[in-house]
């Protein structure tokens, strides 16, 4: 579907659903093309400050280059005796969850013919620092609880809007990453 056609449709959330559905059909027939690898490469700057660069990924059976590079910095705030050059890694995890769920809301709304006017979310994670500081072994390092609160203005009923958010969680990679375990291999060259 071209952009012109998209403008013609009544609902436009800026998501090309036909292309996504086409991709789903194609990848169902060729599951090997559905195998993706996402990457990032990081370099320590100083103190708790790290810069991570993101460019290529693998998918559809070959290397994919965006032709540009994204840079994400992480650091810690001054109360951690750090320089506060950037957001903390855990705040980027929250950003990832917000970005993933919101992208899902927009896509599903488009597929269901629901026009979105605005979508905002506030997201908060509870963390007991006794975990990462090694004070109490029974306290985990990561978030104890995460709360996401969406405010959505859309041409749909309250329940239809809730259903968008529920379906978005069902199909969200980051929601799955956070709610379910993953095997992680960390090696040193």
């Amino acid at each position: 579907m071209t952009n012109t056609q998209m403008m013609d449709t009544e609902v436009n959330n800026g998501v090309n659903v036909e292309a996504l559905l086409g991709a789903r059909e194609a990848l169902d027939a060729t599951p090997e093309a559905a195998q993706f690898k996402w990457r990032a490469s990081s370099a320590w700057v100083n103190g708790t400050h790290t810069t991570t660069k993101i460019d290529t990924f693998f998918g559809l059976g070959e290397e994919q280059s965006r032709g540009k590079e994204f840079t994400v910095d992480t650091d810690h705030p001054e109360i951690f005796a750090a320089e506060d050059n950037a957001a903390t890694p855990v705040e980027l995890v929250l950003s990832g969850l917000a970005g993933c769920l919101t992208a899902g809301v927009a896509t599903i709304a488009q597929n269901r013919g629901i026009q979105l006017n605005s979508v905002t979310a506030t997201i908060e994670g509870d963390m007991d620092l006794q975990g990462i500081l090694g004070i109490d072994d029974e306290v985990r390092n990561g978030f104890g609880t995460i709360r996401v609160n969406f405010q959505i203005d859309a041409d749909a009923s309250e329940d239809d809007i809730k259903a968008l958010v529920a379906q978005s969680q069902k199909r969200s990679a980051v929601f799955d990453i956070i709610t379910n375990p993953t095997n992680v291999f960390v090696t040193v060259d």
């Binding site: 259903a163 379906q167 969680q169």
Partner: peptide
């Protein structure tokens, strides 16, 4: 190990029943 997605599994079921 249990999923932390229980709330959403229930929300989906509640919404679909209502529909």
């Amino acid at each position: 190990v249990l999923s932390g997605g229980l709330r959403n599994h229930c929300a989906l079921a509640d919404l679909k029943m209502k529909r």
